[in-house]
Design a binder for these strands. Structure first.
Lengths: 262, 262
DNA sequence: CGCAATGTTGATAACAATCAAGCTCGGTGG
DNA sequence: CCACCGAGCTTGATTGTTATCAACATTGCG
């Protein structure tokens, strides 16, 4: 089975070596093929509410697949906006860069999630999207998507829903960044990853962090040392097990209490 | 001239007594009248890119106007989602409440800005919208808006643009909350208000804060004491003048440097 | 006039950042 | 195959920023 298809399966077999960019070799033609209608993400991706007819139609506009190597950019801040991207496999971070060269991670994006929404407004990407591991995406030309949305009520509705979901997620993060202690932020972060993995059909309790401690810290507004210390403490307190990037949630309930039911 | 129409004019005459809910008396029928086509916000509100024909059509669906008294809610967290709201005059805060009863302000919304976008996703409001002063809104029934968007390309485009703009704004705030010092947050907050006032045709350098220090602090992830101290310091350093809720920006350039060109 | 809400300012304490040292795991080259 | 190297991670000591606690000032309103 090709990794591209990203069928739900125990995480340990998928990400045996999370750090290596070369371990998983993909058939070169894989990036250009699989249609939405046969994609295992069709249940969680943008076209998820469409009927068979509309799905076929959607396949017509979302033909371009792209392979992005670990560390490479899908698009850069300042690039003109033409397409939204759906993550088929792998993971991305979106990064803003200040003129001083400081980087700030605004989000992590797993399979089935959409990239580029923030650019609709200005017609230009405000952030860069960098692959955290070798990844595949579908490009969805926005002009065509808009046109199709006009003809297909379910698609327009779904598009608005997805965008609105992004706003909710961002607002949740604002809450997190604006009013939580370091401890609460880490707990919320772990729970968020857990939930999103579950949505993809993976285990909610065991998963692999695709990002470094530094990237987590950057995202959460903490230093990497604080992230490391708290992960260690959570392990001491038997809330989780951590071993490098492998995480097991052992006491989700306590973590939820920590976050405080926002 | 009725306050409802919110024509651009020097702020001092509009908000003579920002704290009073009773000073500005409005003709009772005012809330039910003015059409988009004659509204002075038509340049900055949702229908801003529409032609005269579409504008008239839009007027048909955005007929319901509502008056919200200072301190009252436009909608509550948990309410079913039916309409988006455009702020015609006044100002709102959106507030999330945890089960512990802690409140967190996720945004402030001035005239011409849209409320309720985050609810599209779930069909239920995740936050409450509370008026910071006596305010007027237009209700835009979402089902009808979606229907009209399918027929009017410019409207669909504009709707997506506005929603995307919301995402950008939120991500900007995340940046702010996640990686700025208290000093930078206050500076960024003042600049943001300045920019938004200017967009409405008001002075960019003099405006009135519609919210308390506590609300500012809550929004920015700071305590009210820190907000107060920093405003005092900025005044000592002649970056601004503050006098209760009246603010004058005296050195926007230095404030921008402070924020660091994100 | 007096009260309640809001805002200011000072003293102290807590939390997370910074600085610093050393560890671990993978990859690479001898 | 082993030794070394470096990125990433852990842990400790110290510092700094901001929260917290507290007292008091100001404003608007009844």
């Amino acid at each position: 089975m090709l990794q591209t298809v990203a069928l739900p399966q125990p995480f340990s077999t998928v990400h045996v070596k999370a750090r290596s960019a070369t371990v998983i070799r993909l058939a070169p033609q894989a990036a250009g093929t699989a249609a939405c209608s046969s994609c295992c993400l069709k249940g969680v991706c943008l076209p998820c509410d469409l009927g068979q007819r509309e799905l076929d139609q959607f396949d017509q506009i979302a033909t371009a697949k792209r392979r992005v190597a670990r560390g490479a950019s899908l698009y850069h801040s300042g690039d003109g906006f033409e397409s939204l991207y759906a993550v088929r496999s792998g993971a991305f971070k979106t990064v803003g860069t200040s003129r001083q060269g400081d980087e700030k991670i605004t989000g992590f994006h797993l399979s089935g999630e959409l990239l580029g929404l923030e650019a609709i407004n200005t017609g230009r990407h405000g952030y860069s999207a960098v692959a955290l591991e070798d990844s595949d995406v579908c490009a969805i030309p926005f002009a065509q998507l808009e046109r199709m949305a006009m003809a297909v009520p379910a698609l327009q509705h779904q598009l608005l829903r997805v965008i609105s979901g992004d706003i909710s997620r961002d607002q949740g993060l604002m809450l997190l960044l604006g009013s939580m202690s370091a401890e609460q932020r880490i707990a919320a972060f772990l729970l968020s990853l857990s939930r999103r993995h579950q949505r993809l059909g993976y285990s909610a309790s065991r998963f692999v962090l695709r990002m470094t401690r530094e990237e987590i810290g950057n995202y959460l507004g903490l230093t990497l040392e604080t992230v490391s210390r708290l992960l260690s403490r959570f392990q001491r307190e038997e809330l989780i097990s951590v071993q490098q990037r492998e995480v097991e949630i052992r006491n989700a309930e306590r973590l939820r209490e920590m976050v405080g039911h926002w």
